[in-house]
Amino acid sequence: MMRHFDPVELLAGLLIIAIGAFFFIGAQEFSMGTVARMGPGYVPRGLGMIGIGLGLVILTGAIRMPGRLPHFSVRAVATILGSIAVFGVLLTHIGLVGATLAASATAMLGNPDAGWRLIAVTSAVLAVLCWVLFVLLLRLPIPAFWWNL
């Protein structure tokens, strides 16, 4: 039995309607003004309405269409986003070298083929490289270690 809607287009339409509604409802806080003298709420309100309209158009495209849900790779998402989070948190606490080391190691967990030895060597080389390149050579204002904080 064939599905009666394309899940990709369905979700896409719903997402756009949600984003449009978010900006439209949020804009109610700001004054609208008149056409000649627009307040801060005028344009966001308009954008929100167009967004909702386009979302509905996308949604109608989903009706009675074949389609399959795309594969959502939990492991890739978790490790890559995790590595960014690790970097953001650690940078202000232990400095660039530690943050790079941890972020790189976390990111590499997303690759099922990487053994712990490859992860350790790559991350260590990368941390030293970033320290030399960004702190010593380019002199970017980033603390390298916790004693530079």
Partner: peptide, 22 residues
Amino acid sequence: GILYPAVICFICIGVYTVRTSA
């Protein structure tokens, strides 16, 4: 496999330095 962790770190460092903002 050894390039993408480097790219992730470069992205983080780059974005952080723009406004020195975590």
